[in-house]
């Protein structure tokens, strides 16, 4: 699997917020086998004052995907992305433009605009979007080569609210890496996303707020692997009726 030409093996991406401690976070990253962790660059730490924490993150050896979490306008998101590029020395940016402070739903209009600006400046944009196909198309036109549709609102742990829409996305964008971002609560949610043919899953709260974050990280990694293997193996179709798995013809008749 490739994101912007970079070969990635693990299909699980982890967020880094809300962990009990950096030590627990490092342990979870390790037991998940993730290669990419995403870091929020809140404006209050954009002056570089978060360096000590970021150094802890860099010790995990994972590739850092900075994000613009908490940005509510195009300008804010673009400024934050530029600072992130300076601080982390990477063209990657997970772009969030939040439209509603209660649902944390993306403002897809602002998202497309910010993606266009950042792509033209050489950023490799990972946009946090809805499962809307038209928005997806606009994001690709804006220069994105990866899409990150939501499964459910951020932090809600509801799982995939609309699997049919994600299936449609898979069908509509066959060659585009799709990463389900937000809403994954349990390993079964992650497995379901992968069975739908998503390329990867990004999650944070489900691991960070679990009683045993490292244990949950491993469970998520196994679920992602199982779901992907299931998708690749072309699952059977559902049927309404029972279908006997042994032939009924030629059975002996007992009088």
């Amino acid at each position: 699997m490739e994101f912007y030409g970079t070969e990635i093996t693990s299909r699980l991406l982890l967020g880094t917020a809300q962990y009990p401690s950096p030590a627990v976070l490092a342990e979870a990253a390790k037991s998940s086998g993730t290669e990419i962790i995403t870091v929020s660059l809140r404006r209050e730490t954009a002056d570089g004052s978060g360096t000590a924490f970021w150094q802890e993150l860099q010790k995990t050896g994972c590739r850092i995907l900075p994000n613009t979490a908490g940005c509510h306008s195009v300008q804010e998101a673009v400024t934050t992305a530029r600072m992130a590029r300076e601080l982390f020395d990477t063209p990657w940016i997970k772009l969030e433009v939040i439209g509603h402070s209660d649902t944390l739903q993306p403002d897809v209009f602002g998202l497309v605009e910010a993606a266009r600006i950042l792509s033209s400046e050489g950023f490799q944009v990972f946009p946090y979007t809805t499962d809307d196909l038209v928005v997806g198309e606009k994001l690709l036109e804006a220069g994105c080569e990866v899409l990150m549709p939501w499964g459910a609102p951020i932090g809600s742990g509801q799982g995939l609210r609309n699997p049919d829409a994600l299936r449609a996305m898979r069908g509509h964008f066959p060659g585009v890496p799709l990463i389900v971002d937000a809403g994954i609560g349990r390993p079964s949610d992650a497995a379901q996303a992968m069975e739908l043919g998503m390329d990867a899953v990004l999650l944070n709260t489900a691991v960070a707020k679990a009683g045993d974050p490292a244990g949950m990280a491993r469970a998520m990694a196994l679920a992602v692997e199982a779901g992907r293997a299931g998708f690749a193996a072309d699952p059977m179709e559902r049927r309404d009726m029972a279908v006997p798995s042994t032939p009924v013809l030629g059975m002996a008749e007992f009088a």
């Binding site: 809140r42 730490t45 360096t51």
Partner: peptide, 14 residues
């Protein structure tokens, strides 16, 4: 709880 070394005054947001 903010992972930051900044000791400036409390921010408006917080």
């Amino acid at each position: 709880m903010i992972e930051s070394s900044s000791d400036r005054a409390v921010t408006l947001r917080s």
